[in-house]
Amino acid sequence: MNRATLVLVAVALLTAALALLRAGEPAPELEVRAIPHQAQFGRIFPGFAVGEVFRCAGPIRRIDVALVPLGGEPTPLEFTLRADGPDGEVLRSARLSPRDLPSADAWVSISFEPVEHASGQYHFSLASSQPSSHSPWVRYRAVSHVVRPWGTKVLGDTVREFELALLPHGDLRALALAVDGLDAAAAPASVELFDPRSGELVARGEVLQRSPQAAAWVFFTFASPWSAARWRPWTARLQLPPNARVIGDSSGPSLISFHAGEASDEQLAGATVAASVLPDRDLVFRVWGDITNEGVRGRAFARLGSRAPWVVVLFVLAVAALGRTLAAARLSA
C-alpha cells in the first residue's frame, strides 16, 4: 500500500473514530421532538397538575421537560413521578425552585435515583401551589397550520365571531385559540362553525380539558374530524365563559388549526391534567434511562443493522481507492 493511501485511510479512520466518540453520548429512551415548539399549555393552576403517561423499558433516572416562561415572578414547581398513572404509587418527587427555571424556552432536567417499575408504565406531573410562571409545551397529534401566531392584543367581545378561511387541509380535528382567563371547569367553552351562505351549523368543537387555563393555547376538539374544512370560508363563533379573553392581533384571534394525524408512538399514552388523560396530545419531554445504555452510536449501528459492516468496509475501500488514484498519478511521493 502506498504512502498516500495509508495517510488517507488513517485520516478517514481517525476522523470517523472521533466522530463516533462524540456520537457515544447517551440517547434518551423516549423523546417528543416537535420542533419548533408551537403551543404552550399555559399556567399550571393549584389542583390541576400537568403531566404525561408514558411507557419505558428499564430503569429511568432523569426526565427533561421543555418549559417556557409566561411572565411574572418565577414560581416553584413540584415534580412527581408515579407508577402507572395519575393515581399510581409515588416513586420519586422533587421541587423545582425558581432558580431552576429557565428565562427562555429551554429544557429543565429533573434527575433522581434510578427507578424501575414492573409495569413499565409511568406518569410524571408538574404541580404548582399558585398560577405558575412557566408553562410546558404541548404537541397535539395532528398536522398543524398556524393561521395567526400568538398575538400581543387582548381582543374584546367583537371577535367572538370571525371568519375561518384558507385552511390547507380537510379533516379538521381541533382549533387552538390563544385564550386567557378561561375556566372550563366552571363553564363550557366551545367553537361553532357555520356556513356563511346558509347560516347552517356545520361543526362544533369543545374544550375537553376541564381546568382553568391562562396564557394558553386552548384546544377546541371536534367530535370527529371535519372533512370539509379545506380552503372554504366559514364563520366561527366562540362561546366562552365570562371573564375569558381572546388574544390576537388586529386581523383576528391567534389561531392554530389541527388536521388528520392519529395516535403517536405506543410509548405515549397522552398528557394529563389532574386525573384526566388527554390522549390526543403530549407534553414535550424526554426520558433518560440507564446511563450505560447503548447511546446514539449504539442505536445508529443497531438500526443500520446488516448494512453497518458494509458501510464501514466500503467507506475504507473508497478512501483507499482515492489514495490509489494519487499513486496512479505518481503524485504521492
Binding site: V11, R22, R33, S264, V296, A300, V319
Partner: peptide, 25 residues
C-alpha cells in the same frame, strides 16, 4: 486529507447519528 476528514465527519458525526441514532416519538 481535508476532504476525507470532512466527509468522514459528515457521515459519522452527522448523517448516521441524525438518521439512525436519534428518533422522536
Amino acid at each position: 486529507c481535508a476532504l476525507v476528514a470532512y466527509d468522514a465527519w459528515f457521515l459519522w458525526a452527522g448523517l448516521i447519528p441524525s438518521e439512525y441514532g436519534v428518533w422522536g416519538a
